[in-house]
Design a protein around this nucleic acid. Structure first.
Lengths: 162, 162
DNA sequence: ACTTTTAGTGGACAAACGCAACTATTCTGC
DNA sequence: GCAGAATAGTTGCGTTTGTCCACTAAAAGT
């Protein structure tokens, strides 16, 4: 008679995820967590840590001089107040500057600083590398496919299409 | 000469996402945000709101009577202290119960309550529906593909394989 | 027996986000 | 040109959430 092994009644490897097993949202959530942690590690010390929206903001300001906070807010799906604080932070770190829009007294224009541009360069490398590392064992073709699908879902969700 | 239209220098629809355009992580993050909000809406009042890990916990306890907190923690990628609080919460809401494991004095076993089982039924419907609604305009075939890919990435990331 | 590992708890701490209220500016309709 | 609605941004507030760390108890390893 085999010895009854001790240990948890349901070892991790064997636990089924119930309906979540077939639910895209569960995987998205979980992978997101892993992705965020990994990214934070890679951004160690690069005062753009906790890269929730900072990275996107940095890159957008760098590649679209004069872009407005509210536009970025929509792209990263945050409300204006969260966006405002984000901008404050980045200004404190001297990554971007803020000035009034010449043609609209309500709006602002964001511009990159030299330090910000520098960081943007690094961040681009890191972000790209992370994405490819993370999905390294997914076949090239699937990656493309995945990217296309997710891009479409994103654009629709963010209200960019139609 | 055409009239110079007012408005932001970079209208949302036309803004390129720089390198993030081709980065899986960006889309995962963004879609995650949208997904979470949507789910919260659907869970309105169902004292399992802010469904970060509560949903998974609820379903797992329901389908694996006696499952241990630490096992769930690993599946939802949280540390034990976060998991502990989550369990506390759910016990407060009378969704699950906690008892010492008979064969291991350190461990606990979680069980569902009638109220919890009830909620689990509802949540299963909601979670399933959300996932299919959200990805409704993605062709069936792509959904399957997407699911497979993400599942594989998840399992590797959570340390379930190999 | 002694040491190391694992399960769970509790506290402190720090961010982050959303909501709602408020100002200032611009747009719309008449 | 004016009144009212909409838009951009700011600020305060509250809530939630998670992470780090230290600590206890029990089990496993040697």
């Amino acid at each position: 008679m085999p010895v009854k092994k001790k240990g948890p009644p349901y070892p991790v490897e064997t636990v089924g995820l119930d309906v979540l097993e077939d639910t895209l949202s569960f995987y998205i959530r979980s992978i997101n967590i892993a992705l965020s942690r990994d990214l934070d590690d890679r951004l160690e010390g690069l005062d753009v840590a906790r890269g929730t929206g900072k990275i996107t903001t940095l890159l957008l300001v760098d590649s679209h001089p004069g872009i407005r906070p509210s536009v970025i807010a929509q792209l990263i799906m945050r409300d204006r107040s969260a966006m405002g604080r984000l901008v404050d932070q980045m200004i404190d770190h001297e990554l971007i500057t803020r000035q009034a829009a010449p043609d609209d007294g309500r709006a602002q224009e964001l511009h990159i600083t030299p330090k910000g541009a520098d960081l943007a360069r690094k961040v681009r490398k890191i972000a790209t590398k992370q994405s490819s590392d993370f999905f390294a064992d997914v076949p090239e073709k699937d990656q493309k496919r995945l990217l296309d699908i997710l891009r479409r879902v994103y654009r629709r969700t963010a209200g960019l299409d139609q």
